[in-house]
Structure formats: C-alpha cells, structure tokens
Nucleic acid binder design. Structure first.
Lengths: 202, 202
DNA sequence: TTCTGAACTGCGAGGCACTGTCAGTTGACC
DNA sequence: GGTCAACTGACAGTGCCTCGCAGTTCAGAA
C-alpha cells in the first residue's frame, strides 16, 4: 500500500510551500505584464526577494514555475483511493471532474486560467507539460495495474492510459480555445465519452 | 485542393537537403560516441564542416537534428490522398503501417532506430517530439474535416485525433522499450485497434 | 551569357537558462 | 542547548540560441 498520509508538514516544508506560491504568483504577474519570454529568472528572483538559485532548486526549470501545482500529487492519491472500490474508468472520470473542479475553487479559478493560458500558448511550457503528462501516464498505468492485475507494460494498458490522458489535455485545450466559456467539467466528461465509446466511422 | 506536387527540386534545395542529411548523420555519430548532452552544436558544426549558424538555420534547435525526417511531409500528403476514397480511420491505419514501414526500408532501419532511441530517452528531444505531435494533430484534424465535413474545431474530432496520434506514439515507445523485437507494423495495428474499439471495463 | 535581386552562408557579439561548488545559515531531532 | 543535516545565496562557468552584418551563391530574365 502506498501509505501517503497527509503528514503534519514541518516548518521547513511550510516555508518552502509558501515561498513557491509566492514566487509563482510574482512570476505570473511579471509574465502578464511583459510576456513570458521577456521576463528573466533573475527578475523574478529580485521581485520575489529570493536568489535565482532557490528558484531553480524549487522549480527546476522556468516552465515549471507555470506548471507547478501543489494539488497535483493529491489527484493521483485520490485516484488510487477510489480504485479500491471502483473500476478505473469511472474512478478516473470522477477524479478528473469532481476533484479537479473542487480544487479549482479552493484556489481561485482566475489564477488557474492565467496559468493555463501560458501552458497553451507558450510553446516551451506546452512541451514541458507534455513531458509531465508522460510521467503521469507511467504512474497512472502502474496504479491501474496494481489494482486490476493487468500487465503494466502491456500494449493495451499503455495505449488506453495515454489515450485517456491526452483526451483530458485536449479537453483543457478546447476549454482554453473557446475562451473558458463552457464548464470544464462537462468538456472533460464529453472527451472521456469519446474515448470510452471508441471510434465510429463517419 | 492542396496541390503539393513533388516539384523537380532546384539546386538550392538539393544542396540544403544534402547538407541536412550529412549534418544529421554526423551528429548522430557524435551522440552515440559521447552522449547527446556532451556534444555541442559547435562540435557538430566543426565535424560536418559547416557553421553553427547554418545548423540553426536548418534545424532551428538541437533536438530537431534528431527529430527531422525528410519523409514526414510525405506522410501527411499520403494521408490526404487516401482520404478521397477511404474513411479516415483505415486511411490513417494504412499510412501509419504501410507507408511508415515502406519509408523505413528506403532509409535504413538501423538509422531510424538510433534516432528513435534519443527520442525516447533524451527528455528534451521527447518534449520537442510532443510539440511536433501537436502540430501534426492540428493538420490531421483539418484534413479530416475537409474530407468529411466535420467541424475541425469540435471537441469530438479533436479528441479522436489526439487519441490516434498518442496511440501511435505509444506504439513506438512500446516498440523501443521491448528492444525493437516485434514488427512495428503489428504493434501500431494493435494500438489503433485499442483506440478504435473503445474501452472495456476490466 | 550576363545582369540583378533574392536567398543563403559565415562571423562575431551577446542574452539568458541552467549547473556545480562552496561557505554561511537555519530548522529537525535528540 | 547541541549536533547534524538540509537549505540558502553568491559566484563562476557552459552552451543553446538570437541578431545584425558583410560576403557569396543561385534563380530568373534580358
């Protein structure tokens, strides 16, 4: 069992989280003002009153300043929990709709949309998101394999997993392209329907 | 109609193509010897006897030296051609199996495998491939929309397209991870089957 | 064949993301 | 309160990539 309990969280980790939130917020403000490419790490560091070294230690790359989301690991955990009593598809569907939309109102939705815009429109950020999706896919299929006894490295499970993830990401892209008009939850639901039902020849 | 005939190809373009092939081959040799990260553009340029500027003009980025494939545009064209008389799924299936495997013996397969290894194992190359896949997805769904009258920006077509492409890429990854043991054609066929039939709850 | 414009090439300078190291500091655990 | 590990900032360096400029090469017409 992956006993990943939400431990009390020491002072050290609390400070780090606070710093990361602060840096991300400062960075996004600068990006909005001057454009992603024209804002240097050095400027973000100065504005946030930390050293550039720290930013790299926290986020690793410039793109991860946009991509980082403190609730990401919670998603995977929520999925793992539900898998004990549910089939993978509906478990994933619930996590991707209920939990995602729930988290979006814990944080404010406006902030998520601002991040989303850079994920969609800044090529380097989008590429990094793709890499992140790959890693998520690996964890996801291992989790599914653990609960269902399937071969985690079999072609079928691998293909199913990436199809679901890329459907989710395309739902987000669709949401963005249509000006965040409709509810994300419905779009994600619709995208998963398409994958689940399979292809119909027009 | 996208009358993209294979025009006679002037001297200028012929030289450029020859240079790009040469640079790619030289670069891969160096990568194999010293590792992707330890080979600088400057070294590639020196070894290939061109200027670093030219490499950037040809490929744009270091990753594209690995990713570039002169037959890529031909694939899309082949797909467009078949779409006039076939449904999208089987047209894509044919292109992704027949044409891909055919092109692999025009060039030598060993060379493609070497490139593939960097695409799979070098994170930055893999990320760039993801970006390239996104662009392909856009063109693909516009082509399908043109032939079937569907909405090119509708959620359903968007999701179907990215699902097919990511299934194809996962097939390649599977092929790589299993040591290039089975035939790529069969793996791709199997991956497309999974998408086409839809998901079964275990 | 020769002329003219456009495309291509190499060169040099520079910006900036990112890495590694090293002292100095701060929180964790006894 | 003391010890150790983890974190932080400062600094130097590497290499990808961009831009502008001058010289060269090809394409299309005269």
């Amino acid at each position: 069992m992956t006993e990943q309990m939400t431990r009390p969280l020491g002072l050290r980790e609390r400070k780090k989280l606070k710093a990361m939130r602060h840096i991300q917020r400062v960075a996004l403000d600068l990006f909005d003002r001057d454009g992603y490419a024209h804002v240097t790490i050095e400027r973000i560091a100065a504005e946030a009153e930390v050293s550039p070294s720290s930013i790299y230690r926290y986020f690793g790359t410039k793109e991860m300043i946009v991509l980082w989301d403190e609730y990401d690991p919670i998603m995977l955990q929520a999925f793992d929990d539900r898998l004990a009593a549910q089939d993978p598809i509906s478990a994933l569907r619930e996590v991707l709709t209920e939990v995602v939309t729930a988290a979006m109102f814990d944080q404010d939705e406006q902030f998520i949309r601002r991040r989303m815009t850079y994920m969609m429109e800044e090529p380097s950020v989008r590429a990094s998101m793709g890499r992140q999706a790959d890693e998520t896919a690996v964890q996801l299929r291992q989790t599914i394999a653990k609960h269902t006894g399937r071969d985690p490295d079999g072609l079928e499970l691998r293909v199913v997993t990436v199809a679901l993830i890329s459907a989710f990401m395309e739902a987000i892209a669709y949401w963005h392209d249509s000006g965040y008009r409709d509810s994300l939850r419905e779009i994600v639901d619709g995208a998963l329907d398409v994958i689940e039902r399979g292809l119909r020849v027009g």
